[in-house]
């Protein structure tokens, strides 16, 4: 499953298909996609999380979490990432540097920090995002196309409980 083209159309292709199938068109409707627990999850550009079952000839969309987490204190979300870590689905919000002094252009477009949320699935209620204060020994690598997590125990060159990010 991908978003592609100038408009960021959502499309998928199964093994054996001879062409891509467009699922949704629009102006960049999705921020990120991940495959998690045998389903594709898409993060809408307003933060809503959907799951897609593309096993049948008519793919089905299920709304998982409509209410996205927000940032407080004047911080503006710069980018959202989906990443799987130790079996959990994480949503990472990247925000710009926030400075009360509006006349400090040197800090424009600099990342100020991140907030990490975990999708908490409760049997009787809709799943919801819960802030995570620590990811233990995990290490996140956030990318424009895909994000991954690894264990700092297995890769001691990396710092635990840290997010490695690149310029987008």
């Amino acid at each position: 499953m991908i978003t592609h083209g100038e408009q960021g159309d959502l499309a998928f292709c199964r093994a054996g298909d001879e062409s891509w199938t467009i699922l949704r068109r629009g102006f960049r409707p999705y921020d990120d996609i991940i495959y998690h627990k045998e389903r594709f999850y898409t993060l809408g550009n307003h933060g809503g999380l959907d799951a897609w079952d593309v096993s049948s000839s008519s793919p089905k969309r299920t709304v998982i979490a409509q209410v996205p987490p927000v940032l407080t204190g004047g911080r503006v979300i710069h980018k959202r990432y989906l990443v799987e870590s130790s079996g959990d689905l994480l949503l990472v919000l990247r925000h710009d540097y926030f400075d009360d002094d509006a006349n400090s252009p040197s800090q424009l477009h600099r990342t100020g920090g991140f907030k990490v949320f975990k999708l908490e699935e409760r049997s009787s209620m809709n799943p919801r995002w819960v802030e995570v204060k620590s990811i233990g020994d995990r290490v996140l690598f956030l990318g424009d196309n895909y994000s991954v997590s690894i264990s700092a125990r297995e890769f001691p060159e990396c710092s635990a409980n840290c997010i490695y990010f690149t310029d987008d």
């Binding site: 040197s106 990342t111 100020g112 990490v116 409980n161 840290c162 990010f165 690149t166």
Partner: peptide, 17 residues
């Protein structure tokens, strides 16, 4: 200005690269 680095979740600090 490049915008890349390592963010420490506990300390909420960024180490620029």
């Amino acid at each position: 200005v490049h915008d890349l680095g390592i963010f420490n979740i506990q300390e909420k600090t960024i180490q620029s690269c």
